[in-house]
Design a protein around this nucleic acid. Sequence first.
DNA 1: TTGTATGCGTTATCAG
DNA 2: CTGATAACGCATACAA
Lengths: 319, 319
Amino acid sequence: MTNIRDLAKMAGVSVTTVSRVLNNHPYVSEEKKNAVLKAVKATRYHKNINAVHLSKGKTKLIGVVLPFTDHPYFALLLKGIAKQALEYNHKLLLFQTDYMESRETEALQMLQQKQIDGLIICSRACSMRKIEEYLPFGPIALCECVKGGEISSTYIDHYKIFMDALEFLYRKGHTKIGYCIGRKSGTNSRNRDKAYWDFHEKYHLPHHPEYIFDQCYDYEDGERVLSRVKEMDPPPSALLVTSDQVAAGIVISCNKQQISIPDELAIIGFDNEPIAGMLNITTIDIPLVEMGRNLVHQVLTKEIKNKEISATLIERGTV
Amino acid sequence: MTNIRDLAKMAGVSVTTVSRVLNNHPYVSEEKKNAVLKAVKATRYHKNINAVHLSKGKTKLIGVVLPFTDHPYFALLLKGIAKQALEYNHKLLLFQTDYMESRETEALQMLQQKQIDGLIICSRACSMRKIEEYLPFGPIALCECVKGGEISSTYIDHYKIFMDALEFLYRKGHTKIGYCIGRKSGTNSRNRDKAYWDFHEKYHLPHHPEYIFDQCYDYEDGERVLSRVKEMDPPPSALLVTSDQVAAGIVISCNKQQISIPDELAIIGFDNEPIAGMLNITTIDIPLVEMGRNLVHQVLTKEIKNKEISATLIERGTV
DNA sequence: TTGTATGCGTTATCAG
DNA sequence: CTGATAACGCATACAA
């Protein structure tokens, strides 16, 4: 592998001059510049980028932490992140965690070890305290509301959205409402749960903990939820489903079993994934691509900001 | 930032000893080892990994080139890649290309510049010649059959599979068969097209170029295909659809428009994506996760091999 | 078991 | 406009 010292010898100049030419710095005579360029051509020289990283202390790499990529929510978020990273001329280092804290730690350590210039955590299993520990080593952006501090975030007010959706159903006459969620433990999930119980308090509705279904990610989970709902007495008359994919599973199962939507069961999905449009599912549009873009922006500009992104109810045929 | 020289001073040992401790090398006395460890704790020392990369000439990073991540085909492939990379203790650098050759070039250059130890190209827009140019800089694995040479590949025999599916439909009485595909230009696409025309030759069937629909990726594309099919006279009686997502779009549209499947239109999807199970779509199962795993394996073991992965027809309700 | 010296390839500083 | 030299931080051959 030829390096800039070799080039310098070949071109009869110093390494400094070579470096200048390579980085388009001014103050290099045409003559020497051409000599260097000629040597570059002749040797098919290419920089060893690790040396650049070491010397500069930067890598133009952003870490992205997410549990899995084969779910529309994260796939769309990642799409936005990738688009914006491209515009900023940065690349992405992927940490697929399956919600394992050890892998999140690994990502945080990469920040500390300077392999990445910043980190985007799309969803986390570890504590905020732990994340804060790593803040001195580089900017971190999250997808959940973070009050104050040095962490940036781009988030949805899930409490408000959930409450709005519940009220919407209530106005349509629903009082037995359940919901489906992925994890119970995330910040966003807890906000939703709080909205759920506050709603019940507000309207003095009976509590039905069995109307809450967790571990809902895929179509099959929707199928499973429906089979459980069918066995209930009384069953919920409406479901808030925090992924359109799961909502689609429920809708398709209902079709198969001649359960009428929205008459027997009303559904509101989340994310406005492509399948929701296809199946005419009423859903909450969450601009995931935009959120992804903003996360990159926050990490790279290093402005510590908490940006709320608004979600919109899209009325279609399942309510 | 404290470095190993600082640690050496603090612990009263040489940098070599520090390095030994840090990398769990043998031949270090407990005493000195503890002294070093103590200094590590005290300073909250962490390696600068870029220095390691430079020194070793390796990064434990694998580049992954794919057009987009928000499509089940690539999402599942990526899932397999991520799983296996984790087992090999390597990380992934993502190149989302949108089939732009310039971005593929960038990935190849990262190999040359030693930012990545190897490259997996899930789908390419650039020429094989170009890829071969970069082979001297590190292992490259592709998702298409590569005859000989130094490139590894994990692939499906798309010609055979397509032909089998066509024959399957033929035996069911179909003679007017169309197909939907993403790009027309990829190697896999060309193999499929060849199978398509060879099939027509074999059974002396009339040619219907209008039965071929390209740019089919999403549900909406399936919808679009169906609306075009409806206007045809005669329309195809069966469609091979190279993504279950598109197939799902067609199936859902047919349901809406009371077009009976498989009586009026038979459908065979591809990939056995989750939605295919939900909608009872007959499909070709392609073990994408397994393929992803194998690609990583090939890149890291550097055995140059071409591994064919077999696909299986899953008979469900749309034929 | 330990330490010295050197290499890895680039960028940055500063003097000329 | 140019160049010598010092970082950057770690790994490792070799010597002891």
